[in-house]
Design a protein around this nucleic acid. Structure first.
Lengths: 282, 282
DNA sequence: CGCTGTCTTGAACTGTCTCAACCATGGTGG
DNA sequence: CCACCATGGTTGAGACAGTTCAAGACAGCG
C-alpha cells in the first residue's frame, strides 16, 4: 500500500457561495445563502451581522460537558464530533463539512453532549443560543433554515447507523466512502477523488472497528479494484461496483425467508471485476 | 429463562400532561404542553387546532420513500423507526415514546427516509409540513419546540451510536436498557420495571447483533444479578452495577496509553455482586 | 539524529454469527 | 378436544471474522 506517486487532487470545483476570508462583515444573509435557503434577497437578513470565527487544526469548538452557549455553521474545513469515555477511548460520532450545523443537539440541554474539534484549518459562523429566539422571530427564514440543518444532521446520523449495521468491515468502509463521496459532491468538490482529512484511527472509531481492520479493509477494496488508496488520498475507480459492494447486507439473518432459498454467501465473492489497482500502487 | 410467575407491572405513574382520548379538540397548546415547553398560558396556541390520530398496533405512520407530508408527535404508545434493505433485512434505527417527534429527518427532503410503525396501540399529533412555516411565524413557541424536539432526537440518535460502539454484546444490551430506563422515567413511568414493547429481533437489529445473541446477553445480565428478565418484562435489580457494566468500553484500543499500564481485562469480571436472580426465575 | 505518530502487515485468540434444535404460546379448524 | 401450524424465545455447537498483540516501514520534527 505504499504509493510512490501520490494522486494529484486538483479538480476541486469552487464551492457554491462566497467564503468570507475576513472576520468582520458576515451577515445572516451569507449564512442563509450558504445553507442553500433561497432567501428573498435584499432582506433585513443582509443587515444582521453574524460572528465569524476561524478555527485552527486541532482546535476545539466545544468540549463535552461544557456550557453550551452557541451553535455553529461550518463555513470551511472539516470537523470531528466525538465523545470521550472515562477510560479515554474516543468515539467519533460524525465528521462535518461546509454548511453543516454543529451543536444542534445542544439546543435541548445546557451543556454540549459532544466535543467538536477541527481536523484542518477551518471556519464557522457562530450563533449564540440566546439569540436564536429573537432571530427566529425577526427572520422566519432563519428558523426554517435551522430546522432544515438539524433535520439534515439527524438524517446523516442515521446514515451512520447504516454504516455500523453492516457486518463486514469492508462493507462498512465502502459505505463510509460512498457517503463521504456524496457529501463532497454536495460541497461542490469531486466525488471521485478526495483527501480524507481524518486518520485511520478516527475512521475506525466511526466505523466501530479496530484501526488495523480499517487498514486491511482499504487494502481489500483496493485489491478488488474498487478504489485506489494512497495514504489519505482516495480515488474511487468503480463507483457502481463500490455501491453494489456497500449494499451487501448482514446475512438475511431472520428476515422472512420464503423457502430454502438461502444464499450461502457471507461476504460477496466480489464478482471479480478488474482486480488491479494494487499493481498501480506497488 | 422461563418465568412461571410474571412480574406485575403496576407502578406506572401517570404521565405528565393530559392524554386526549378524543379525536377532536386538540390544540397546539396541548402539543406544547406535552413537549414540556412552558407555553405562556392563555395563548392563541389554545385556539389553533391540531389533528390527532390513533394508530393501531402494527400500523404504519410512514413508509420509506413515500412522500413526506407531515411530521408527528407521539402522544401515547411506542413506535419503531426503521429502514428496510433491498434484501428484506430490517434495520431498526430508534424506538420512540411519548413526546418524541417523528419524521423530523424528513423536513429536509421530499420523502421519508425511514419507515415508522406502531408497536402497540398508539396516538400522535399530526402537523402537516406545509403548515410549519405559518405555525412558526404565528407561534414562535412552536418553532422553538420543534427545534427542541429535533435536537433531542438527534441527541438520542447519537446515543444509539454509543450503543453500537460497544464491542461486547452484553454491554450493548446494558446500555440499551439504561437508555430505555431513563426514557421511561422521563415519561413518568418506573425506570426500574417496565415492559419492552419490542421483540428480541427488533432489539437485536437496534443493537447490531444476532437475535440469539440478545437472548444470551439477557441471560448473562440476569446471571450477573443486574436485571430480572421474564419474556418482555424487565426489572433492573442493580442500577449502579448495570451502569458500571455498561461503561465497559472497547479495549482502549489505541487511546493514548501513557505507559505499560494496560489492563488485560477484556470484558468486566462483573465484580460478582449478588449473582442470584436466576434462582428467582427457575 | 533519535523520536514520535501514523499506517501497514503478520499471527494467534476469541466472541459472535450461523445453523440447528427445542420449548412455550396462541390461534385455527377438523 | 386435540392435532396442527406459526410465532417468539432459548440454548447448543462449529466456523469464521475481527480483535488483540507484536513488529516493522515511513514521514515529520525538535
Amino acid at each position: 500500500m505504499n504509493c510512490p506517486d501520490p494522486i494529484q487532487i486538483t479538480d476541486q470545483r469552487t464551492p457554491r457561495g462566497p467564503t468570507p476570508k475576513k472576520s468582520v462583515g458576515s451577515t445572516i444573509a451569507d449564512l442563509l445563502q450558504m445553507s442553500g435557503v433561497p432567501v428573498g434577497s435584499s432582506d433585513i437578513a443582509a443587515r444582521v451581522p453574524v460572528s465569524f470565527r476561524k478555527v485552527h487544526a486541532g482546535e476545539s469548538l466545544a468540549h463535552e460537558g461544557a456550557p453550551a452557549d452557541a451553535i455553529f455553521f461550518v463555513c470551511a474545513g472539516t470537523f470531528k464530533v466525538f465523545r470521550t469515555d472515562k477510560d479515554g477511548y474516543e468515539q467519533v460520532l460524525a465528521f462535518a463539512i461546509r454548511s453543516e450545523v454543529l451543536g444542534f443537539d445542544a439546543l435541548c440541554m445546557a451543556t454540549y453532549p459532544v466535543a467538536i474539534s477541527a481536523l484542518e484549518e477551518s471556519a464557522v459562523y457562530v450563533v449564540p443560543k440566546c439569540d436564536i429566539p429573537r432571530l427566529c422571530e425577526a427572520l422566519p427564514a432563519f428558523g426554517l433554515m435551522l430546522q432544515h440543518a438539524g433535520s439534515l444532521t439527524l438524517a446523516r446520523s442515521r446514515e451512520l447507523v447504516d454504516i455500523m449495521a453492516a457486518v463486514a468491515s469492508e462493507v462498512r468502509l465502502a459505505r463510509f466512502l460512498i457517503q463521504h463521496s456524496r457529501r463532497m459532491e454536495d460541497c461542490g468538490q469531486s466525488p471521485r477523488r478526495f483527501l480524507l482529512r481524518m486518520g485511520r484511527r478516527e475512521i475506525s472509531s466511526l466505523l466501530g472497528v479496530a484501526h488495523e481492520t480499517v487498514s486491511r479493509s482499504f487494502t481489500t477494496l483496493s485489491t478488488l479494484g474498487l478504489v485506489h488508496v494512497c495514504a489519505r488520498e482516495v480515488e474511487i475507480l468503480d463507483m457502481d461496483g463500490l455501491g453494489t459492494f456497500a449494499r451487501s447486507t448482514r446475512r438475511q439473518l431472520d428476515a422472512p425467508v420464503p423457502a430454502r432459498a438461502r444464499t450461502p454467501v457471507h461476504r460477496l465473492p466480489a464478482q471479480g471485476r478488474h482486480a488491479h489497482s494494487l499493481s498501480l500502487a506497488a
